[in-house]
C-alpha cells in the first residue's frame, strides 16, 4: 500500500501534470528526472503536459492486482499526448469493447487507489473519451 510520503511526493505530476523539458535536446521527461534519457543533459525547464491525446495501445484488465479487483473489467492504455509525451493510465467512462487504437482521449482527475477503508485516498489522472 502507498504511504503518505510516497504519495505526496508525486502530487505535482499526478495532480498538475508537471514535467521537465531538456534544455539541450528538448525531450520531455515525465516524471521529471535528473539526467535526460535522450542526451544525458542536466538542465531542464518545467513544462506542463498536454491534456489530450490519442490511444496508442490498450488492454482491458480482467484479473486485477490487489486493490483493483472491484473495478474489473477496466481499460488501461498508453496514450500519446498532443505534445508527443506518452503516459500510461486507465481509460474510463467508455465501453471497453468499443475502445480502439487512435481514439482521442482527455485527462480527468479521479480517485486511483485507496489504502483500505481507513487509509489515504490516492488521486491522479485517468483518461476519458474526448467529446466530439
Amino acid at each position: 500500500m502507498i504511504g503518505s510520503a510516497r504519495y505526496w511526493r508525486e502530487i505535482p505530476q499526478r495532480y498538475r501534470y508537471e514535467a521537465a523539458k531538456c534544455a539541450k535536446c528538448g525531450r520531455v521527461a515525465f516524471p521529471p528526472r535528473l539526467v535526460c534519457a535522450g542526451c544525458r543533459g542536466r538542465e531542464f525547464t518545467p513544462v506542463k503536459l498536454a491534456q489530450t491525446g490519442v490511444v496508442e495501445t490498450f488492454t482491458v484488465i480482467h484479473v486485477a492486482p490487489t486493490g483493483f479487483g472491484d473495478e474489473t473489467p477496466y481499460a488501461v492504455g498508453i496514450v500519446k499526448l498532443d505534445d508527443g509525451v506518452r503516459v500510461t493510465a486507465q481509460i474510463t467512462d467508455c465501453e471497453t469493447g468499443k475502445l480502439a487504437i487512435g481514439d482521442r482521449v482527455k485527462l480527468e482527475f479521479r480517485r486511483l487507489q485507496q489504502d483500505g477503508e481507513s487509509g489515504i485516498i490516492c488521486y491522479g489522472y485517468k483518461f476519458v473519451p474526448a467529446i466530439g
Binding site: 467512462d93 480527468e108 482527475f109 480517485r111 485516498i121 488521486y123
Partner: peptide
C-alpha cells in the same frame, strides 16, 4: 463511479 467523489468533481 467508484473513482469519482466530491474532490474529483470539484477539481473538474
Amino acid at each position: 463511479t467508484p473513482d469519482q467523489d466530491t474532490i474529483t468533481m470539484s477539481v473538474e
